[in-house]
Amino acid sequence: MKSAVILLPGLNRDQDMIAALTKISGKPPVMIWQTETEIPDVDLIVIPGGFSYGDYLRCGAIGARMPALRALAEKAAKGVRVLGVCNGFQILLETGLLPGALMRNASLKFVCKEISLEVTNVDTAFTRGYEKGQIIRCPVAHHDGNYFADPQTLADLEDNDRITFRYAENTNPNGSINDIAGIINKQGNVMGMMPHPENLIEAAHGGSDGRALFESALDIAV
C-alpha cells in the first residue's frame, strides 16, 4: 500500500514517521508540502507530530487551514485512511474531521515519557492488529494533549465505540476526559491520537508495540 506524509513548517516528528512508514511498508511515503492542492492516489495519509506554526493561536489551528489539509479532507471524504499523531491529531480536530479539542495539559507541564495505552476498539483499520483490552507501551511528548469534548460529543464517542485508545489506569498524563488518547471518525477511516506509535516499532526503540498500528493501516500481515 502507498502512503503519504503531510509536511508543515514546525513539525519535528516527520522524519520519525517517514522512517516508520518506509520500514514497515517497504517503500518511502510521498511527501506533501502544505501548499500542495492535490494529493496523489495513496491508501494512507499521515500527519506527523511537532509544533506546526509554532503552536501560534492554538495548536494546529494555522496548519489546519493550509491547502494540503483541504486536499486531505477531500481524500478523507472518499474513504482514504488518515492518521494524525500528536500535532497531527490537533490538526485533525482543528479541521473538523474529528470532534473535540485538545487543551493545555492539566499539569501545565510538557510531558515526555512512556505511558501505557489500552486498546479499546480493535474493529478499526488502524487497531485490528491488537487484541481488545490489550495494554501497550507508547511514548508521549506534548504540552497540549488534554482532550475535551462537550457531553453530547463524548456520549457519541462512548456509545458508538469511537475511542480507540485510552491511557491505561493511573497513566493519564494530561487530564484528558475519560482517559481518551485516540479517537476515530464515524466512517472509520480517520483516526487521531496523542501518543507516538512511530517511536516504538523496532528493537532499537526498545520495543515494537506501535508496529501493529501501521501494519493494520497498511494492510500488512493482519
Binding site: L57, R58, A61, I62, R65, L93, E94, P99, G100, A101, M103, F148, A149, D150
Partner: peptide, 9 residues
C-alpha cells in the same frame, strides 16, 4: 468562526 476561535471550547 473560521479561525480566531475554536467554537468547540
Amino acid at each position: 468562526a473560521k479561525l480566531l476561535a475554536n467554537t468547540v471550547i
